[in-house]
């Protein structure tokens, strides 16, 4: 199975190859890979791909505990309109 150009984060169009490159360059945690590649940072805010990113990072180091570092959730957790921003509702 050729999976190098497989898209993992659909919003930001991040491929498996890009995740691997980031990992090889020294990004070991999901958070570091997110910062490097923008995976999980698109319009859906990671609702589709963060579990896959977590699972992929976990498979790299299965012995590490999974409680330790979770990707952060920050408000607004749903897309908001410019109108709401302008009214100061966010």
């Amino acid at each position: 199975m050729n999976t190098s150009n497989l898209i993992v984060c659909r919003c930001e169009e991040v491929t498996l190859e890009q995740l691997e490159e980031a990992y090889q360059s020294g990004c070991c945690s999901a958070r570091q890979i997110k910062m490097k590649t923008r995976a999980t940072m698109g319009a859906c805010q990671g609702r589709v791909c963060r579990q896959m990113l977590d699972a992929w990072v976990h498979l790299k180091n299965p012995q590490l505990p999974r409680d330790a570092e979770q990707l952060a959730y920050r408000p607004p957790i749903r897309p908001v309109t410019f109108g709401q921003l302008a009214k100061g509702e966010v």
């Binding site: 408000p75 607004p76 749903r78 709401q84 966010v90």
Partner: peptide, 21 residues
């Protein structure tokens, strides 16, 4: 109605939604 944030204000919760707080 989507809730996009939640914060504590004194003894109450304030939920920010797509239709106001």
């Amino acid at each position: 109605v989507s809730v996009h944030s939640i914060l504590r204000s004194g003894a109450e919760w304030v939920l920010k939604t797509s239709e106001g707080s």
